[in-house]
Structures are given as C-alpha cells and as structure tokens.
Design a binder for these strands. Structure first.
Lengths: 183, 183
DNA sequence: CCCGCATGAGACATTCGTGTCTCATATGGG
DNA sequence: CCCATATGAGACACGAATGTCTCATGCGGG
C-alpha cells in the first residue's frame, strides 16, 4: 500500500532520462502508480523535478565521497569520479539540460558545492603540476559535465557500449585526442 | 513588406538558443512580425524546427567547407573547424538537445553526412599517426558536439569569454587536461 | 492613380497537460 | 472484526499554446 517515494523518483529519473518531455501521466504509469497518487506525493511537475534535482545532487555528492577525490593523483581521482558518477550520468544529463531553462532563476545551491568540489580537484591537479594551467578548472568541470552527457547519450542511443563509458570520457578529458610518444 | 524568411530563421535561432521553450508568439515578436505571418511562412512549430535544422545543417556544411578539413594536419583542421563552427554553436546546442526528443523517429539525413565528414577527419588523423586509435572517430565526433554545447552554454551564461571558445574546446579535445613535457 | 497582395490584429475552436475534486475499494493495524 | 487510511479511477475546470479564420490596412507595382 505505502508507495515508496524513492522508487517513484527512480522510475521518474529512468523515464525522463529517455524522454525529457514525459507527462505526469507517463511518469505515474512508469512508476506503477496512478496520476492522483503521484500528485499526492509531488505537488506538481515542478516539485517532481526539484526532487529529482535533489536526488541528482545527492548522488553526485555520494559519488564524490566514494571516489575519494582528495586521495592519490588527480588523474586517478578523476578516473574514480567518472566511474562513480556513471550510474547517475543519465539523470545528470537530464538535469543538465533542464537547468538551462531556469535562466539563472532559482538555481539549486547544491550544484555550487559540487562544482566547487570538482573544480577543486582540477585545481589540485594543476597545483601539483599534473594538469595544464591554461584551461581553467571551471571549464574542465563544465567539459566533464558535457562529456558525461555525450557519453550517456551515446550509450543510450546504442552507438557506444556501457563498458567503454568511463574509458572514453576519462581518456579524452585527461589525455585528449592527440597521440603521445609514451603511453 | 516582403518578409525575409532567412531573417525570421535567424531571429528564431537566436531566441531559441537562449530559451528553447519559446512559444510561436515569442518567436514572432523576436522576428518583428505577427504570429499570423510567422504561421504563413512556417506551417507550425514542427516546420519551424525543421527549417532551423536545415539551417544548422547548412551552416555545418559551410563550416566544414570553409575549414578545408582535408588540408594540412588533422589538428590544424580540427582547430579551423571549431573556429568556423563557433558562430553556429548556439544553434547547434539547441538542435543537439532537441534531437534527443525525436527518439530515432525522423532524424534528418543531413546529420549523417556531417557526422561522416567529421568522423572522416578524425580517422584521417588516426591513420596519419596523429591521433590515438583507442578512441573511436564516432566518440570523438560526439565529444566535439558535447564540448561545443558546453562551450556555448558557458559563454552564454557569462562564465566564459567568447574569445576563449575556440581555444578551450580545441585544446581540451586534442591535448586533454594532462600537462605535457613539451608544449 | 488604383488595384492586388502581403501583412497585422484579433477572434475562435481545439488540443493537451495540469491541478483538484469525489467516490469506491482494498489493505493493514488495532 | 472493524475502521482508518492510502490508493485507483475518473470527472471536471483551467490555462497555455496551437492552428485556423476573418477583416482591415498599407505598401508597391502596373
């Protein structure tokens, strides 16, 4: 009887990841509940998206924790981070595009914290002489988001294998396309 | 008196780039014409988006031509290509996210041609020993799109300067974040 | 100069998604 | 066993955007 809001959120995330314009009715069906019940738990579509945003933020924070981004080389930390964020990549891609509509209105403050942590990781790599300094941490962070969205879309569209997700993103982000003398 | 459809498309592109959910009425106002006239030139929102897609494809093709991607090293060609595509980056970002809704329905065939040309450029770089071969041309192409979208969004949100657009994208795409011995 | 034609303004119906409501039902605890 | 409570189904009104229509206007060409 008791509907598990967590389960509803997961179903909504899975659906909206594939079809970002899904209606409340479709979300309800995907979660296996009626539209009325969905509306009882989430006041409206806004509330649902906000909840999904909170979920995405929580998963990002968890990924940042589990990846232990302060340990080891920055490169290894980035690799662990991408691997830890992979399960949430689809949701992140949805929220990433969804946020662009808010035109700077009420941006959830949680993102700033995450941006800071990731930027901090890149900055640590720069200070340690590991990363180049002509690309700002802010841009590297943004590029990480963009590449994860591209990777998620590629896997979702079947153009890429899930097992290559982490490798593709990390290798491109860190090493770039150019061939290097020593690998 | 005569409304220039090209001008209308440009205005629509400029608006939808910033606000992808703009209504037909807003588009009409942005183009300086009435909604009725807008509707006379473009049967509906779908037709408008299709026309914008055609415009984006045409601009991509033009950029590919002007960048002369078959000349010089692949790296230089990529740099020229990104520079040539920069003016269209906003429109491309809009179409990039818009296309994900079509879920493989009627995907304009023009994109395949463009994908092939860009993929071919990356493949040329690989065959010439210039680019690494463990990242597929398809992924490099997708990553280029993603990075251009991220770059466009960064410039649009004021977090980055337009003058850094080309440098940020090309340097990250080709060289990656890792610091290299010789610069 | 005058007529044709594209445009602007607005009314109108339609569709779609949303939000709210009611009522029947079943489930689970006391 | 009985009642409280949550759920499902569906009706309903509302708003927004769309697509179509009519009519007046004004510019431009013949």
């Amino acid at each position: 009887m008791a509907v598990d809001p967590e389960h509803v959120l997961r179903a909504a995330a899975a659906l909206l990841t594939r079809k970002s314009t899904a209606t409340m009715d479709e979300v309800a069906k995907a979660a296996g509940i009626s539209r009325a019940t969905l509306h009882r738990h989430f006041a409206g579509r806004d509330a649902l998206v906000r909840a999904l945003e909170a979920l995405g933020i929580a998963e990002c924070e968890a990924a940042l924790d589990v990846a232990r981004i302060d340990e080891g080389t920055a490169s290894e930390a980035v690799r662990r981070l991408v691997g830890a964020m992979e399960p949430a990549a689809g949701l992140l891609a949805f929220l990433y595009t969804e946020n662009q509509l808010f035109e700077g209105e009420g941006q959830n403050a949680g993102w700033a914290t995450i941006d800071d942590r990731i930027s901090g990781l890149f900055r640590r790599g720069q200070l340690g002489g590991e990363f180049r300094i002509d690309l700002t941490p802010a841009w590297l962070t943004e590029a990480l988001y963009g590449l994860m969205a591209s990777g998620a879309w590629m896997v979702h569209s079947g153009k890429g294998a899930p097992k290559d997700f982490q490798h593709m993103i990390v290798e491109l982000l860190l090493g770039g396309a150019l061939r290097r003398e020593e690998s």
